[in-house]
Amino acid sequence: MDSAVLVPSDIQIFPASTTGRLSAGQRIALDALRSALMAHGAEDNGVVTVSEDEWREAAYDAGIASIEATQSARRKAFLRARLDLVSSGKVSTDDGRYWIPSPSGTKRDKTPTESYNIPTNDTSFSPNDRHFGSGTSGTSGTKRDNVPSCPARQDGSEAGQSGTHPFRGVPHVPPAGAPMLEDDAQAIADDWCPE
């Protein structure tokens, strides 16, 4: 090859900054978590974590709220940032410990049986969590005996897609993580909180 032609392209070579969408408070909290992990991090099963108190103190020191802010305001600022970071997956939590998860495609993803990054009983939560389709569902095998039948419908009809036989006797079950109708969420919410 003796020559080459440069052609303009819209392809982004470098990934967008992972902190590009963070608010100031979230960015400070995330930086504070990194600092806390370096200063106070405790390693367990290959994961370095800090307690909530250690993270909170680091966030206060980093100025998550102004010096003039009341203790309550500082606590709220940290709480908001913490919930946002956990709900967006930028921070993981389990049993009161916090850490920064490895990016996708890391060792954990390639060796799912290894408890490298996130404990198997990860219960990260946020008010913005939708539902928990993965981790709490699924079967322990592929045999028909392992698959429980769905309860019969109230109108007496068989569950499943109309006009077809259920595959190997297993009634149709919506896939985990399938979108839920907004009306369903409203009905459940009304059931819990009629107010």
Binding site: T123, H131, F132, M180, A185, I188, A189, W192, C193
Partner: peptide, 29 residues
Amino acid sequence: FATFSSDLKVAMKGAAIRNEWRADTWTLQ
């Protein structure tokens, strides 16, 4: 949940509807 303040209940309900909580999500939250 019945012991929570009314404001907190309403705030949680709003989040539940916006984020489509299931019954088990409510329990966890």
